Amino acid sequence: MTTASKDVILVTGADLAPEAVAMLKDFELVYAGKTPDEDSLVALCEKHQPVGIIVRYGKIPARVMDASKKLRVISKHGTGIDTIDSKAAQERGIAVKAAVGANAPAVAEHTWALIFACAKDVVHLDQRMHAGHWDKATHKSLELKGKTLGLVGLGAIGSRVAEAGNVFGMKVIAYDPYAKAAPAGVTLCSLEELYRDAHIVSLHCPLTADNRNMINRDSIALMRDGAIIVNTARGGLIDEAALLEALNSGKLRSAGLDSFQTEPLAAGHVFANVRNAILSPHIGGVTGDAYIGMGTGAAANVLAVLGAAATA
């Protein structure tokens, strides 16, 4: 007697948390590797005909979807689904899911790491100390107490960032067109008011066609002189040329960036030698705990969709 082969789940990465693997024990997992390109994903879909794709790296356009006749669900290993062509998936009856909130603590913490690095000039002072300098008589950091923290987005991450802002004695304002009410200690405002009033503008919203390059020359012109911009969301939210101009001119004190228009950054990227740009390689959500949470969240979403399809 032969055993029926298992349906395949394609993982666009080299690994998955053991806890997530255990949840998907009834499926065969196929890994695409650390840096899968579109052609390799098409080839794997044509070969294995996966019923589901867990997206860690790379993009999932319509061409990848069409390579598997059995595909029913695309599940993001994280929260941002801008790398998935959701419109194409909807047209094909393929569910698109995200592991909402799974990495919220990690990203919120990294947001504050970047805020502190910008406000306290941590990186530059460290470099100066290692070079033998003692800048106590000439350096002044930015004190956060009494300053205004402006959050674009009040989801799981933005709300956590807001809580810490309250603890530090900051005035916290937020723009979120989907928020029905503000958490304690947060005042909802318009986007223009946020740009005008905030000492720190921190981005926590998904990237859409409507908000691409929302941080641009016009929005920066509205901001306070010496404001700080922090982005742990998506690089496409910022017009990088406009940000570069504002950092170099002194209009902005600094920027803390964990995501970029094109990733990974190419050698010689315009931000590479900008002293007041604090950079990290899109690792805000990369912690041991978040790795497990995003993996199990993605697996749960796959199981929920396929289980519903099986009983329909």
Rank of each mutant, 00 (worst) to 15 (best):
M294P: 00
S202W: 03
K76N: 01
T208Q: 06
A308V: 03
L252K: 07
G153D: 07
V55T: 11
A113Q: 10
M23V: 02
E245T: 13
A255T: 09
T83A: 15
A4I: 12
A290K: 09
M214C: 08
V11W: 04
I228A: 02
T232R: 06
A20E: 04
E245Y: 10
V73Q: 06
L29A: 05
T232F: 09
G155Y: 02
E245V: 13
V73N: 03
L16M: 12
N276Q: 14
A164K: 15
D176N: 09
A108L: 05
A198W: 07
V286N: 12
L149S: 10
P61G: 14
A242I: 10
A221V: 01
A198R: 04
I84P: 04
V96C: 13
R56H: 07
C118L: 05
I173M: 12
D121V: 01
L10P: 05
L16E: 03
S190N: 06
V42M: 13
P281Y: 02
A209C: 00
E163H: 10
S86K: 15
K97S: 06
V42K: 15
A99G: 01
K251Y: 02
A102P: 00
I283V: 14
Y178A: 14
Y195T: 03
D26M: 01
G256C: 10
H204I: 02
G285I: 05
